[in-house]
């Protein structure tokens, strides 16, 4: 059952253009010039209940604008949105009880209060009875491992601890859908991994639908089964992770250490990415050349070491961004 529906969504921003220098500033007062930037260009998609979906794209692609339209922050210029059967532009308050939001770039917690006081405050915002708030805080404390710092003011916590508190606070009212806008931004790999585990646990434990944006490919790879790629305000791909890998993994990387150098220039289907004496890094296009053909070109006894791997997902996504930009 689809829980989020977006149909033909459009959103533009009018931006003032100013020429350089003080003269430019004066000119812009007398005759201001504006440019209309289309942030979201006629996009449509659906998200099913319990799904963990990655909504990704390069900077300025329209990810945050879309997420903000789904969470009532921005009004679309045209198009229709339905989240849990409600229109965010008309049922803001009602919908707010059912959704949770975490913006990695924006702190929602009160910095001078402890995580405990913050959770109490957020509980009160959602009209939850005091006893019930205490019960939920206990549970969140356990799931998110907040015990050690629950009584320390948020401003004194590390970034990782703060993000954990942000996510915990966004779950105090047990939302059905959680919107996470770059929740792992600025975190070190260890903390990133623990945040990912928490998001996964939350999806399993609470059955929460997760709508997720991130620039970190490992976030997407480890968390989501479906990915929507947006670029220049348009959806350029909406597919499962499995299909994405299957369709785009038609290239293999072969790293080989040889006793004697072999010349692979001008061999069809093989591109030499790096060549350092007898160490070679080759990219094989498996649509034109099979790996077996490549291996035939190298004498077994000439090989000291060999490693065959898939093209990193990051490179695949980058190439989709670039294709979308064209």
């Amino acid at each position: 059952m689809s829980i989020i529906k977006a149909q033909n969504l459009n959103k533009s921003f009018k931006v003032k253009i100013k020429e350089k220098g003080i003269l430019g500033s004066l000119k812009s007062i007398v005759r201001p010039k504006y440019e209309v930037i289309k942030a979201v260009d006629n996009i449509s998609f659906e998200v099913n209940e319990g799904e963990m979906i990655a909504f990704i794209g390069p900077n300025g692609a329209g990810k945050s604008t879309t997420i903000k339209m789904l969470t009532c922050i921005l009004y679309p210029d045209s198009g229709e949105i339905s989240v849990l059967g409600m229109d965010p532009t008309k049922d803001r308050k009602k919908l707010a009880y059912e959704i949770g939001t975490v913006f990695g770039q924006k702190e929602q917690l009160w910095m001078h209060l402890t995580p405990y006081d913050n959770l109490k405050f957020f509980g009160a915002i959602y009209d939850i009875e005091d006893k019930e708030i205490e019960k939920r805080i206990e549970h969140l404390k356990e799931v998110f491992e907040l015990e050690k710092f629950i009584n320390i003011p948020v401003r004194n916590l590390s970034l990782g601890q703060r993000i954990r508190c942000e996510i915990a606070a966004s779950l105090i009212h047990e939302p059905k859908v959680l919107f996470l806008d770059e929740p792992t931004i600025g975190l070190d790999p260890v903390v990133k991994d623990s945040v990912r585990k928490l998001i996964k646990k939350m999806n399993k434990e609470f059955g929460t639908t997760v709508f997720f944006t991130s620039h970190d490919v490992s976030d997407i790879e480890k968390l989501c089964k479906r990915v929507i790629i947006i670029n220049n305000g348009k959806i350029v791909l909406d597919d499962s992770m499995a299909n994405l890998k299957y369709n785009y993994l038609n290239k293999k990387i072969v790293e080989v250490k040889l006793k004697e150098k072999i010349d692979f220039e001008n061999v069809k289907g093989i591109e030499v990415i790096k060549s350092n004496n007898n160490n070679l890094k080759l990219e094989i296009d498996t649509r034109t050349t099979t790996l077996a053909d490549v291996l035939k070109l190298i004498d077994d006894e000439n090989i000291i070491d060999i490693n065959i791997s898939n093209t990193p997902l990051e490179d695949i996504i980058s190439s989709i961004y670039k294709e979308g930009a064209k």
């Binding site: 903000k68 969470t71 009532c72 922050i73 803001r92 308050k93 009602k94 707010a96 009880y97 959704i99 939001t101 913006f103 924006k106 929602q108 915002i125 959602y126 009209d127």
Partner: peptide
């Protein structure tokens, strides 16, 4: 900075 208040049911 209004974002944080808009997503609250108040």
């Amino acid at each position: 900075k209004l974002d944080a208040y808009i997503v609250q049911p108040k």
